[in-house]
């Protein structure tokens, strides 16, 4: 009878453990980037006509690297892909590309912010309250390190037309798109996200 009771309780415990909170379907959430856009309500977007943008280089801000730029190579086509995606969207909005020395109204700035977070946890295996030298044992702790790497793609529109008295410029629109590192296809998802960023910003038209 005791065995029977244990068996039945074990059977009952399985579904109740199953009922605890599971992780959501991660792949389903990672197949597109979250796109967040903001704009300056004082900006007169209708007065901007000409834009400029770097051809092959995007900015790179990281807490693990001293590099500040990411340049296109055949092995790393990502910078050119996102630049072309921004250009395509700007052209479709009616903006015209000009070189930076041709007095553009706005400059498009693209960069990646990469952030590596490290978490460390200390475990004390087989730790006894009796300190060694007093008849007990002491095992040195084990340190486990967890890493989480995240990256956000940022696109900014900078008003070059209306500089202030100190020749300073203002960001009139930006888009934050993430997470690039954990995405399923980061290049295609970045291109899709740039399109979404423009679509959800009808005031740019």
């Amino acid at each position: 009878m005791n065995i029977m009771k244990r068996y039945l309780f074990f059977l009952a415990v399985i579904p109740t453990l199953w009922s605890c909170e599971p992780e959501p379907d991660n792949l389903r959430l990672l197949d597109q980037l979250v796109v967040s856009t903001n704009y300056d309500p004082d900006a007169a977007f209708g007065t901007y006509k000409y834009y400029t943008i770097p051809k092959d280089t995007i900015g790179y801000v990281s807490n693990t690297s001293r590099d500040t730029i990411w340049t296109f190579t055949t092995a790393q086509p990502y910078p050119r892909s996102v630049i072309n995606a921004v250009r395509h969207q700007m052209d479709s909005l009616g903006f015209e590309y000009v070189d930076r020395d041709q007095d553009p109204d706005v400059g498009m700035n693209i960069y990646i912010i990469e952030n590596l977070n490290l978490f460390q946890q200390v475990y004390y295996p087989n730790y006894y309250s009796n300190y060694y030298g007093y008849g007990g044992y002491y095992y040195y702790p084990v340190v486990q390190t967890y890493a989480q790497n995240t990256a956000t793609l940022v696109v900014e529109m900078i008003d070059l037309k209306n500089r202030n008295a100190n020749n300073q410029v203002k960001i009139v629109w930006n888009a934050y798109m993430g997470d690039v590192v954990n995405s399923v296809n980061y290049e295609q998802q970045s291109i899709d996200a740039i399109r979404t960023a423009v679509r959800q910003s009808p005031y740019l038209h």
Partner: peptide, 11 residues
């Protein structure tokens, strides 16, 4: 002054 687009889980 902005918008955010995403799919999500409500839990």
């Amino acid at each position: 002054n902005g918008a955010i687009t995403t799919d999500y889980f409500k839990k």
